Amino acid sequence: MEARAIIGWNLRVLRVARGLSQERLALAAGIDRAYVGRVERGSENVTITTLEAMAMALAVPVAALLTAPEAGAAPPPALRAGRRAKNERSSTSEG
């Protein structure tokens, strides 16, 4: 797996594990949402500065984005589409 694909894979795994949309991650990292999508698809060359911003937004070390997944690992899942119901939003500390 090439470096861009590894970064994209890890970014999506970590983002989904934290329940963040691409838009929320982009906002937290100070980057464009479409850019996050391109990184996840492995079609964007990422700078170290951008890697660091995304890692900080995910609260992980930069190295977590560079580690190759285990052979045969399942593809990262997708988040449920759409907005959360009001009762789900009010019960979280997310603002």
Rank of each mutant, 00 (worst) to 15 (best):
E2Y: 07
R4D: 02
A5M: 10
W9K: 11
W9F: 04
N10H: 00
R15I: 00
A17S: 11
R18V: 07
R18K: 14
G19E: 06
L20K: 09
L20P: 09
S21R: 07
E23P: 09
R24Y: 15
R24G: 01
L25T: 06
L25F: 12
A26M: 09
L27W: 12
A28T: 15
A29M: 07
A29H: 10
I31S: 00
Y35S: 11
Y35W: 03
G37H: 04
V39L: 07
E40F: 00
R41Q: 11
E44K: 10
E44I: 15
V46Y: 15
T47F: 06
T47Q: 06
T47A: 05
T47P: 01
I48S: 09
I48K: 12
T50Y: 06
L51R: 02
E52H: 14
E52I: 09
M54W: 09
A55Q: 04
A57D: 03
A59L: 12
V60Q: 01
V60K: 07
V60W: 06
P61V: 10
P61M: 08
A63S: 14
A63C: 03
A63F: 15
A64Y: 10
A68C: 06
P69N: 07
E70C: 08
E70Y: 01
E70G: 02
A71E: 05
A71C: 05
A71K: 06
G72A: 04
G72Y: 02
G72H: 04
A73W: 01
A73G: 03
A73H: 00
P76R: 04
P77H: 03
A78C: 06
L79R: 02
G82I: 00
R83N: 04
R83Q: 11
K86C: 14
K86R: 11
K86T: 12
R89A: 13
R89K: 15
S90W: 13
S90A: 15
S91N: 14
S93Q: 11
S93G: 15
G95K: 07
G95P: 11
